[in-house]
Design a protein around this nucleic acid. Structure first.
Lengths: 218, 218
DNA sequence: ACCGAGGCTGAGACCACGCTGAGAGCATCC
DNA sequence: GGATGCTCTCAGCGTGGTCTCAGCCTCGGT
């Protein structure tokens, strides 16, 4: 796991305590360093302080999600009231704690996040919410009825929001290795998706980048 | 056990007293924190105040049960009359105490709950109530006669309400590891369940998510 | 303005998925 | 020994999903 906190004492305490619980702990002392480490996507869970020099915890979380990193994130606020729960969850946090917190509660929450893994996580890009547990997609509250292929395609594009994904990459990640389908199939399904997105006023979400592929704006 | 109370003095007193009784105590100071801790499902019993900042004790209990967590819960009300016993029990509480209460009575109730364990737990999703102790299922008060397989299937789906469960997962968790049955058996039993649910007006409860599995709406 | 490549879309073939009725196999009860 | 209830398989059917094809549209370069 990754611990991002600017107080040296807290970092040391967490590192020692969590290591004793059998976890492998990496620490970062400010926002930019935390973001860089988290972007690698190699952590199972991130513990993120909100008050950070350089880049606030909110910003770190926001950029992390925009980059398509779905690692569970547990936020820590320095004092009661500072944390806006709605904001945090909107940005894709998976939980929060208020200092001072019980170490046992912290460990219990971390274990819960680790157990749940990636499967229960939600993906949020602006008004688009993909609930992977319920396999449900909503835009600004309105739900979308998607076929399995449409769902997989949208999820893959949303997961990599902000980056252009080529048709061949999509064939690989959505259609699988057998490569039974042609590139035109991707075009057809993007068409289906756009029709359904248009119906709820989200027509602009899925952009074509001519010659390169498709893009979901973050 | 988990203690959820917003008064720091009460938390300290309970923690000290119950630890002296040989229990392992974790505390939480508000509704959301209590809910998250309780959702981990690792506690044997939860002591839950009703007046809580962020999320009332009723709400915490409600969400806990909706998530399929069956940990016994003992409610605490700040003064007489505030607690609506019917409401609390309806939501799945296992007992309640009125402040100020005798510490000895508290310990006696906790021990009773701990002794009884998980067997008396109930599962509530909307109008659906699964009483695991009585092995009885009701919809809005009407009882359903289910065969053992039907009961196990519905219980598993209700326990994971809000998440799509695949046929293969159901074969594993309901039919067991021997995997003697085919996926079609799941379809057949979902059909049986739907027929019985339809008869009491709950036909919409069990949804098919084509290509993925089945889902009980939370 | 023209042209070609890339992208989009309507039509339709195909087939996998899910649902259902029938019935076999088995245990239990009278 | 028959009746009953439960479990599960099988085969058939309808529907919705997937994907290809062909033709049209759009964009960007010259």
């Amino acid at each position: 796991m990754l611990v991002v906190d600017d107080e040296a004492g807290m970092r040391r305490a967490l590192q020692r305590g969590l290591t004793a619980e059998g976890m492998e702990v990496v620490v970062a002392a400010d926002g930019p360093a935390g973001l860089r480490a988290a972007l690698s996507g190699t952590f199972d869970v991130v513990l993120l302080d909100i008050m950070l020099p350089g880049l606030s915890g909110y910003r770190v979380l926001q950029r992390l999600r925009a980059a398509g990193v779905t690692t569970p994130v547990l936020m820590i606020s320095a004092k009661d009231g500072e944390y806006d729960q709605a904001d945090g969850l909107e940005l894709g946090a998976d939980g929060y704690l208020v200092k001072p917190f019980s170490f046992v509660v912290l460990v219990a929450q971390l274990r819960a996040l680790l157990r749940r893994g990636d499967t229960a996580s939600r993906l949020t890009i602006g008004d688009l919410v993909v609930d992977r547990a319920a396999r449900a997609v909503t835009w600004a509250g309105q739900s979308l009825e998607l076929s399995p292929r449409e769902y997989a395609l949208l999820t893959e594009l949303a997961r990599r929001a902000g980056t252009v994904v080529s048709k061949d990459e999509l064939l690989g990640s959505v259609w699988g290795d057998e490569q039974a389908a042609t590139r035109n199939a991707v075009e057809v399904y993007v068409g289906y998706l756009r029709r359904k997105l248009d119906a709820v006023g989200a027509g602009h979400l899925l952009r074509t980048v001519r010659g390169h592929g498709y893009l979901v704006e973050p």
